[in-house]
Structures are given as C-alpha cells and as structure tokens.
Amino acid sequence: MSVNKILPVTCPSCSGRMKVQKLHCNNCDTSIEGAFELPVLNHLNAQELDFVLQFVKTSGSIKDISTQLGFSYPTVRNMLDDLISKITKTEKELNAKTL
C-alpha cells in the first residue's frame, strides 16, 4: 500500500524552516549532500497550494475560481491577496538568508 507522504517544510521541534540535505538518483544511485532551500511554493500549506493550482488551471480567473469553490468574488480576491503577501514575505526571508 503506497502512502501519500507530505513534505514537511517546518521543523516539528522548533518550527524553523526545513532545508533539503540529501538528494538521491534512483537510476544510478548517485547521492548529493548539501543544504538546499525548498522552492517558495513548497512553503505553502496544502490548502494554499491547492488554491494556486486552481488559479493556474482557470487561467487566473478569480470569477471562475469563486464559482468552483462556491465563495464570493471578494473572498477569493482576499485569499489571493493573502497568498501574495505570504509568498512575498517568504521570498524576502529566503533572499535575506542567501545574501
């Protein structure tokens, strides 16, 4: 039975941001170790990621998403604004770390 594992992005111990330490190729058994930052989108929770997918699938139409989700237009627009704020904040934090 396959288990749908969820990538943990925050540390269960201190709630800090997690990094990828090891990458492995199943084809040739090569492993690379380091400290790789997760992409910005991986810092979103499942609900937020689902919203991003819906947004892309509807070609960015807030009206279409609001129909699909059964929410009003301003509610969906607010969800998008909150997501933009979160992504912008995460990007700034990640950029600050790399500088």
């Binding site: 059964g70 929410f71 009003s72 237009y73 301003p74 509610t75």
Partner: peptide, 10 residues
Amino acid sequence: PFVKIAGLQA
C-alpha cells in the same frame, strides 16, 4: 454571508 454572496448578488 459575504463569504458566499457579494457584489451585485448581495
């Protein structure tokens, strides 16, 4: 109710 209804409908 504005979570579901807004704009012209409201």
